[in-house]
Design a protein around this nucleic acid. Structure first.
Length: 316
DNA sequence: GTCCCGAACA
DNA sequence: TGTTCGGGAC
């Protein structure tokens, strides 16, 4: 490739979404210094074991970190190694998940599945690159980069809602997936994904949340921050979620919780215990319940047993 | 009501 | 590209 071609390629990939006069070295140094001076002492920040990191990342995907701490410690005690998890019963992992109110039971299944992949496909040793990690069940671009970064320091820049909000506010990066990706990658100092990704997410969590706390948290980027200068702290739109109360997700959760407590349950018994207005022939009756159970079975979470006069369900 | 260190599936 | 997946804390 000639120099001209290389320049064209850079052009077609789009210009840097960051301000052209931004002092990258100063910005990087300021954030890392701020992070290393003080940050929340989450226990998974004390380890570089890929399995332990993986567990913490899956738990953290949509759950507040403060709620993850005790669950992570219990999980680690119960299944200390990836081999232990691979050998566990799926139903035990799912029951653990609901016991600790972690939500999204599919993630328990994915984690268990991924543990089997690590043992079977990689001899029990986690692969070290984001691309290989993404082959694991339930591991997408975010989690792959997180595990690669925190376990091996071999990741690319993580792009999550925190990073998007921070770069949008501080450097006026346009609200666009490609721009966030490019901007985040350009900001990250080469070969420092472990400290960098921790630091920028800490910034988003502590100083630059929905409600900004620039001065209280001594934000290290105030001198460069576009939002700090203009007072405009709007953030990229995050898709608003449908209400949980009365949703099918709520009833799925109740079903899995009950089955984790009772081993095996009759259809109508289950129905009466997940909603007070359950009547076998009513609007929310057997037909409705069978639909939920059928989907849970398709998800690999629940097992349905059809007998002569009775239908029962249990965790799979 | 809103948010929280996403990913799979259609 | 849109939809689905839990539940606690605020």
């Amino acid at each position: 490739m000639t120099d001209v071609d290389a320049a064209d390629a850079a052009d077609s990939a789009g210009d840097s979404p960051l301000p052209p006069d931004l002092d990258l070295d100063a910005v990087r140094e300021a954030l890392i210094e701020w992070y290393e001076a003080d940050h929340r002492p989450f226990p998974w920040r004390q380890t570089d074991d890929a399995y332990e990191i993986h567990v913490s990342e899956v738990m953290s995907q949509q759950t507040q970190l403060d709620r993850v701490v005790s669950a992570w410690e219990d999980f680690r005690e119960r299944w200390p190694t990836v081999e232990d998890l691979a050998d566990a019963d799926r139903s035990d992992v799912v029951a653990f998940w609901t016991d600790h109110s972690l939500g999204y039971n599919n993630r328990a299944k994915y984690l268990h599945e991924a543990a089997g992949q690590v043992v079977d496909d990689y001899g029990g040793e986690y692969p070290e690159t984001p691309d290989e990690l993404e082959e694991l069940m339930g591991v997408g671009p975010y989690t792959a980069n997180a595990v690669a970064s925190f376990a091996f320091n071999t990741g690319n820049a993580v792009v999550d809602t925190n990073v998007e909000r921070v770069t949008y506010r501080a450097f006026d990066v346009p609200d666009d997936d490609d721009a966030f990706e490019a901007g985040a990658q350009e900001l990250m100092p080469e070969g420092k994904s472990r400290v960098w990704n921790n630091a920028i997410m800490e910034l988003g969590g502590v100083a630059c949340g929905k409600k900004p706390r620039c001065d209280e948290a001594s934000c290290p980027w105030r001198e460069w921050c576009h939002a700090y200068q203009t007072g405009d702290f709007t953030a990229p739109d995050v898709p608003t979620q449908p209400s949980f109360e009365g949703s099918r997700r709520q009833f799925r959760g109740r079903i899995v919780r009950l089955l984790g407590e009772h081993d095996e349950m009759d259809l109508d018994t289950l129905g009466h215990r997940i909603r007070v207005d359950y009547t076998p022939d009513g609007e929310h009756g057997q037909e409705w319940l069978r639909g939920l159970l059928s989907d849970l079975a398709d998800d690999g979470l629940v097992q349905i047993k059809e007998r002569k006069e009775q239908t029962t369900a249990r965790l799979q």
